[in-house]
């Protein structure tokens, strides 16, 4: 049993812009997956209403495109914040730049994924493995934005989306482009499943407020760890 008076220290980890980014991102990804799925497999509606009185599919697509724009600019904003935000928001959390990063990744893999025994050493911001996984999701974001705007380019006259006309040709036409865009949706779904589970997992075994950290912005660390890490 731990010594009595297990002191925890409050550390401010996620700045407000990071939290806003996170929840906006979550919201639009859910919207994009839902509307995207419907665009691919629209429900059967038997109706006698005149087509001119309905715009259901148009609305579904409209939501997809609005969410797509938010998703894209939110993503760009997050990249920007990776250069100006605090140390836990910094881009170095996501891209392995030194050997230590890989060692930490291996540690997390051993302890949290393979459940091997070892010294528990919970990280304060992102752990190395999570950070790297987010880097992969950023690449998926990029792919989804490029394929999405590539499809969208033929539906609009706005110069911004029209910058993506080259995409279709690179993928070998709209057919293939659409298939890629559709298949990539599943990455988002699988990621969301694992991501949500792991947040609960960390909250459960570490008891440091992992879940609520994306709300208030802080996590709690042991006083000793704080003293150790304080350089």
């Amino acid at each position: 049993m731990k010594k009595k008076g297990h002191y925890l220290r409050r550390v401010f980890v996620w700045q407000l812009p990071v939290r806003v980014y996170h929840w906006l991102n979550a919201l639009v990804i859910v919207a994009l997956c839902a509307t995207g799925y419907l665009i691919g497999s629209p429900p059967a509606i038997m109706s006698n209403v005149e087509a001119s009185h309905r715009y259901l599919f148009g609305i579904i697509r409209f939501i997809h495109f609005v969410a797509a724009y938010i998703f894209f600019f939110n993503f760009i904003f997050r990249i920007y914040w990776g250069f100006v935000g605090n140390k836990y928001a910094d881009w170095k959390n996501f891209i392995p730049t030194n050997k230590k990063y890989f060692q930490q990744m291996w540690e997390v893999l051993k302890l949290d994924i393979f459940m091997m025994k070892g010294k528990e050493n919970p990280s304060i911001g992102h752990n190395a493995l999570a950070g790297f996984t987010y880097f992969l999701t950023f690449i998926a974001f990029l792919i989804q934005c490029i394929t999405g705007f590539g499809l969208y380019a033929s539906m609009t006259d706005w110069w911004f989306a029209d910058m993506f006309v080259w995409v279709s040709n690179v993928f070998g036409g709209d057919f293939a482009l659409r298939n890629w865009h559709h298949a990539a949706m599943w990455f988002f779904i699988l990621f969301a499943m694992v991501h949500v589970y792991l947040v609960f997992y960390h909250d459960y075994v570490e008891g440091r407020g992992e879940i609520s950290s994306m709300g208030g912005g802080w996590k709690f660390i042991e006083e000793e760890v704080f003293e150790e890490e304080k350089a």
């Binding site: 691919g40 994924i113 559709h182 949706m185 599943w186 699988l190 499943m193 694992v194 997992y201």
Partner: peptide
Amino acid sequence: NADKVGMVAAGVTAAGIAVHA
């Protein structure tokens, strides 16, 4: 098709999560 493959992958992921839990 992408959705069948995706659903199988989601099933495998869910099973993996259960085992891990």
